[in-house]
Design a protein around this nucleic acid. Sequence first.
DNA 1: TATAAATATGATTGGCTATTCATATACTAT
DNA 2: ATAGTATATGAATAGCCAATCATATTTATA
Lengths: 110, 110
Amino acid sequence: MNKLEFKAFFYAIGDYSRFSILSSLAKRDLNVSEITAMTGIEQSNVSHHMHCLLNCGFVNVRNDGNKHIYAINPEVRQTVDSIISHIASYKKQIISCDIANKAYISKVIK
Amino acid sequence: MNKLEFKAFFYAIGDYSRFSILSSLAKRDLNVSEITAMTGIEQSNVSHHMHCLLNCGFVNVRNDGNKHIYAINPEVRQTVDSIISHIASYKKQIISCDIANKAYISKVIK
DNA sequence: TATAAATATGATTGGCTATTCATATACTAT
DNA sequence: ATAGTATATGAATAGCCAATCATATTTATA
């Protein structure tokens, strides 16, 4: 594995908004409005993320009138599921992990 | 899965330097000098990364004289292996993924 | 054709963090 | 003790990128 592959993979999947979108799409195909409603991410922001996910081949799109319906790539669905279970098994340690959480926690506390 | 867990997980494992260190540790236990030699990452930088990985429970450490020998957490070894194979299967798509690669590629080209 | 609805695009900005540099600490050996 | 080796710590900087805002494009409907 080289740095290029690694960077691209984690860039695409390692963002919480994009991962949330992929998790939603793992359940069923969705158009942009539905993604916006389910994730709470603002419309234009969703579009930016879809552009990225589409460009990376993580999702596919088909048009139904003026709605753009996105579907997750089956391989990616598997990866998403796998990461979810990895995080679940890693959960125990996360409480003690102040470095990784520092930034996020400080935000939440504010 | 919540945002906190996700962020912490990807913070720790989603950095190429830290992932490289974990990959090296997946082969065998290593002290800091050895990690520096194997990865090419500068000593103080390695120390910073080890502090993070240790804090997150991704690695453990034992002392042998003035050498600090780091060992990967078995669960994490499995996660690392799994991610490597996910990236391998994702490799096909990566060529067409200009968004994720833009920053990195533009650096390499310069 | 005018209005509305759905989605995309482009530019900007603020926050996060990996790296670097300088230095400190800890242990070893002579 | 003192010099050398190994590792850690703290502060500062520079680059990256998600989110936002404003606006454009496309399709539907009246």
